[in-house]
Design a protein around this nucleic acid. Structure first.
Lengths: 140, 140
DNA sequence: TCTTGCACCTCTAGCCGCTAGAGGATGTAG
DNA sequence: CTACATCCTCTAGCGGCTAGAGGTGCAAGA
């Protein structure tokens, strides 16, 4: 059992050192043992945990959702309905966000294309911002 | 000149009362006159400003960008190159975000579809989260 | 006129998920 | 033994608000 320092854990997991400490402080990552000199000493299990957390964060799950997912992972007999629900909810969020951003994209494109690179008082960018009535989509 | 209270300004602009005060505090919205009893009294120009800010926020511009855009609007002789650049930068951001979310969407769909609604230890959601190697996209 | 009750005021603190920095202790290589 | 990286704790800050406490202003109804 070689001891894994927090820096090493950061390197291997891709999670920054202060972030690892932060995850510990909010109870997302279990407190590791400490060395004689009070330095954190991680086990392999912590690294798995960190990888899980990182991946979930990359997928945009909130910390609370991750907390639930981790708890589910620890209880393999449970139904995966909860995990499924969390993932589905996130999927719906993402789909909604994509729709919304796609509308914004269209709006921004119109603005940018309309810009004749002249003076501000003819600038379509400023004009559209000032007058929502010129928008393609009444509500963003 | 009827006086416009902050509540009325909120109603007309769709920006919440505390948010209006917040915009004033960070110097995005000019301080209005005050009534005898120290209550804010807005002009029409403030409402235009608020509409502009709201629209820009809806399009995802950061407060600093909006500050610049407002300054540009006040100086109509200037070239609109800056406004154009800000809008273009935002467009690129949005496009990047859409690409990224589309990848996440695919990932989440795989997870959710793979879930057999059985027990956690066969749950694809948990499994994929725990093992990034199962991802379709090596980097999110 | 008085009172009810909403809208307004300022101020401070909290949200999320970190990130930065101060000021000090530990650990390791030369 | 010294230099230097890494570690420790603690507090404060980021953006863009939002919530709440504790108090004042104001208009309309009895």
């Amino acid at each position: 059992m070689k001891k894994i320092t927090i820096g090493e854990a950061a390197r291997q997991s891709g999670v920054k050192v202060p972030t690892i400490r932060y995850y510990e402080s909010i109870g997302l990552l279990a407190e590791p043992d400490r060395s004689e000199g009070n330095q954190r000493s991680y086990e392999q299990s912590h690294l798995h945990r960190l990888a899980f957390i990182r991946h979930a964060r990359e997928l945009g799950f909130e910390v609370d959702a991750i907390r639930t997912l981790l708890a589910l992972q620890d209880d393999p007999n449970q139904s995966c309905a909860s995990a499924d629900a969390i993932a589905k909810a996130r999927l719906i969020e993402v789909e909604q966000k994509i729709r919304s951003l796609t509308a914004l994209k269209a709006e921004l494109e119109t603005m940018v294309e309309g810009c004749g690179h002249g003076r501000i008082d003819q600038c379509r960018v400023i004009e559209v911002l000032a007058d929502h009535g010129q928008c393609m989509h009444p509500r963003h």
